[in-house]
Design a binder for these strands. Structure first.
Lengths: 145, 145
DNA sequence: ATAACAACTTCGAGACTCGAAGCAAGTTGC
DNA sequence: GCAACTTGCTTCGAGTCTCGAAGTTGTTAT
């Protein structure tokens, strides 16, 4: 019963994720974005201290070469810039450009619209968050370690 | 702020999914599986009427050529067989082999262990499911009926 | 100073996904 | 019956995504 509940929950979360992605891929393409680049935009909060490549890579659960590749694409579209860190010149921070901020906001709007979660009442969303907050660190700000 | 709740929920679900996948990729590789092939195994219930390729493709939100590719890999490992449908010989059903059933059970065990969801109380899991069931069809209803 | 380490990049290979085109089987209209 | 159309699946080719290995530049410790 416990086991079956976990299986059902994993399946349900997987399904919500897949539907969201399937629904948003088209609109993303119209913005010149792929799922990978859009996901990277999600990881860049406009108001935080610009994170290093390493920090962003860990947020995306990917490795450094992959993030370099994705960052190249975002930079080529003028959505982010690599800014050297004056305190450690090996490190480069990813900074959203003004266009990047606008596109990111559009991506988030489109994703919310495309997600099955938008069909839930605010109460249900709150319930969902209260449970998920127990296993993923507070969803607003992710700390680097 | 309704908007913000939806964004936070999408982010949280995304994060749970990514962590589960990141944690399970290694053990999957030891079973000779990739995320794509393991995902296909999830879509094959051992006790249901064997689904056609088309049905499985729609479950996985992918297209026919992609499923052909994945089914080839599963068949090469002896985990599934393509069985022609006597009622429509264009159609082929995907059937789990005995080895396929065993590997699928192992995949599900490993996934449950690797998922952050396994840290939740049964009550929380039930709460989660009660909300998610509102937006995803009660998928994979259990086999004891 | 020299060695060890860290952040990032480049390179090459493999895996995944998709559209286009093709094939075999079923369906419809004459 | 037969030709035209549709459907389920496969093959093929291209593009994207991810990763390990190796190299570059900068930092830290001895």
């Amino acid at each position: 019963m416990d086991e079956q509940g976990a299986v059902a929950a994993i399946r349900a979360i997987h399904e919500v994720f897949m539907r969201t992605e399937a629904g948003v891929t088209g609109p993303l393409a119209e913005l010149g974005l792929t799922p990978a680049t859009a996901q990277a935009l999600w990881a860049l909060e406009p108001d935080e201290e610009p994170p290093s490549m390493k920090t962003v890579a860990s947020r995306l659960h990917c490795n450094a070469p992959n993030l370099s590749f994705v960052a190249d694409q975002l930079a080529a579209r003028g959505l982010v810039e690599r800014v050297p860190d004056p305190r450690d010149r090996r490190s480069r921070a990813l900074v959203l450009t003004e266009k990047g901020r606008q596109v990111r906001a559009q991506v988030m709007r489109t994703t919310v619209e495309s997600s099955p979660l938008s069909a839930l009442d605010p109460d249900d969303v709150a319930t969902l968050l209260s449970v998920l907050d127990k296993i993923v660190p507070a969803s607003g700000r992710v700390q680097d370690s």
